[in-house]
Amino acid sequence: MTTAESTGTVVILEGSDGQSQPLRDGLSSSWRIAASITDVASDRYALVGLSDGANAALQHALDDPKSVEVLVLVSPTAIRPTSGDPDGDGASLENRLPDVPCPTLVVFGRDDKSVQPDAAATYRERIPNCNIAFVYAAGHNVAADRPQALINLVSDYLERRETFIVQNRTGVINP
């Protein structure tokens, strides 16, 4: 993998369950992992958030749109059932999704029971440049359930953004 100069730094915002280490380790061979947003030396960086860290990442991308070059939200819970708190932070974030300024990948565990069934579609419909992905055999904590799958997915997206949908692995068996 080659690292694009403009996305050489990744900031990972951990969720309260603290399971970002596999992703942190997996990305570290190709990316500079900043300890926090305030430690980033470059002007722009990739921002990855997990669980409630994904909510914080989304909030930060909206509040400081010039600094975030690419955004990855893993198991975000910002969109809550409408029966919960329609005027709370989640509703506010949901209404601001059209303002997300950068390419965004939203990742869910296929078996994540903590998100609304239509949450993925909501992100995809409202964020202007958004891809969604489901990780099979993973629940809310994708980094713990399928660490290598998450590393492969996120690193490919960080490198290629929305063009990650184009297959670039060879299918040749016997050259």
Partner: peptide, 28 residues
Amino acid sequence: LEGMDLILKAMTEPEPFAWEGQYYQYRT
């Protein structure tokens, strides 16, 4: 097991999605 799960997801998910499986990987 994965194939069944992907078929059901493909029939019910209203927006295009990527699938990161153990045996199958599709980006659209």
